[in-house]
């Protein structure tokens, strides 16, 4: 039957994501980003099995030693192997942000779409509240909550998810406004489809792409926030290894033992750059980012 030709677009939505993934991979920046992110995830999963030393192992006779064959990135002020701690240092951050990001995108996206659908004066009013909220520095807002409820993942995950969901409201609302104004939504309305069916079939698939890209961007910012909190002493508590925490711990010796901070900084920034490159590739693959070279 020639009429039943198989088309990737129709078989399953999972197939679509495979195609998108391939598209990201086809772009140089996307391929680099995707490789970096994959490397970090593999590292986080496998590091407990492959670290050369136990991250708690203290060597009092070998503190703040420079890079050597035994300790590639030297040792810290307690004589612990920095290389081992570096490898493990992303786990906590990835777990916390890995859970908090989807929550942030889901609730922010839900509220944003809702606002966009309500529209009119109520929408305007609610958005001014969002604006007011966004105008406060994030670190202040977060510290208030953490100081009140204490640190630890049970507080950090909801806190990050809450604050990072708020900018998503803006994006989701704008995307909703764009889609709602298009003729295919009017067409569905004129046919008399119930509201729910219009939202789920016409609106969501078109807003979802924007939210996916937004989610990837949120993830990288959230990682930075998490590391900053650790650096300030509100994130991960010692002796658990964490990049932000490691940078803080070696800060005092930065002038004569800079290798302690160097490793974590490289890993953290590479992960963030990797996520950003992937998000970029995703935006291009989904056709959201249509930016072209300026014709000048």
């Amino acid at each position: 039957m020639a009429d039943q030709a198989v088309n990737p677009a129709r078989t399953a939505s999972s197939m679509r994501w495979l195609i998108v993934l391939k598209d990201i991979w086809a772009r140089p920046s996307g391929a680099i980003g995707l490789s970096i992110v994959t490397f970090h995830i593999l590292l986080a999963v496998l590091s407990p099995l492959i670290t050369p030393y136990d991250y708690r192992e203290i060597d009092a006779f070998n503190i703040l030693s420079g890079p050597s064959a035994a300790h590639w990135f030297g040792t810290d002020d307690l004589g612990r192997d920095i290389f081992s701690r570096m490898m493990l240092g992303g786990r906590e951050a990835l777990i916390v942000t890995g859970i908090a990001t989807p929550i942030a995108v889901l609730w922010g996206g839900f509220v944003g779409i809702l606002f966009g659908l309500i529209g009119g004066r109520i929408d305007e009013f609610l958005m001014r509240i969002v604006d007011a909220f966004l105008s406060l520095p994030w670190i202040l807002k977060m510290l208030v909550l953490i100081v009140t409820f204490g640190s630890g993942n049970a507080v950090l995950i909801p806190t990050l998810a809450f604050f990072y969901g708020i900018p998503v409201i803006r994006i989701a609302r704008a995307a909703t406004h764009d889609v709602v104004a298009r003729d295919f939504v009017s067409a569905a309305k004129a046919r008399g489809h119930p509201r729910f069916s219009i939202i789920s079939r016409e609106l969501l698939p078109n807003v979802m792409d924007t939210l996916m890209v937004e989610g990837a961007m949120r993830w990288s910012w959230m990682l930075l926030a998490f590391s900053s909190l650790s650096f300030l002493g509100f994130g991960v508590s010692p002796p658990t290894p964490d990049w932000g925490l490691m940078i803080k711990e070696t800060r005092a010796y930065l002038t004569f033992a800079p290798w302690g901070a160097l490793g974590p900084v490289i890993l953290l920034s590479s992960l963030i750059i990797g996520i950003n490159l992937t998000a970029d590739g995703l935006a291009k693959a989904l056709g959201i980012d249509r930016a072209q070279k300026a014709p000048v």
Binding site: R10, R182, S186, A187, A188, E202, P205, N206
Partner: peptide, 24 residues
């Protein structure tokens, strides 16, 4: 039934022809 001026706008870019016709 209403048909619009620009089919790029009036057909949902994420739906296949089968899905588009399946709706009505």
């Amino acid at each position: 039934q209403l048909i619009f001026q620009n089919p790029d706008e009036s057909l949902n870019p994420r739906h296949t022809v089968a899905q588009i016709l399946g709706q009505p």
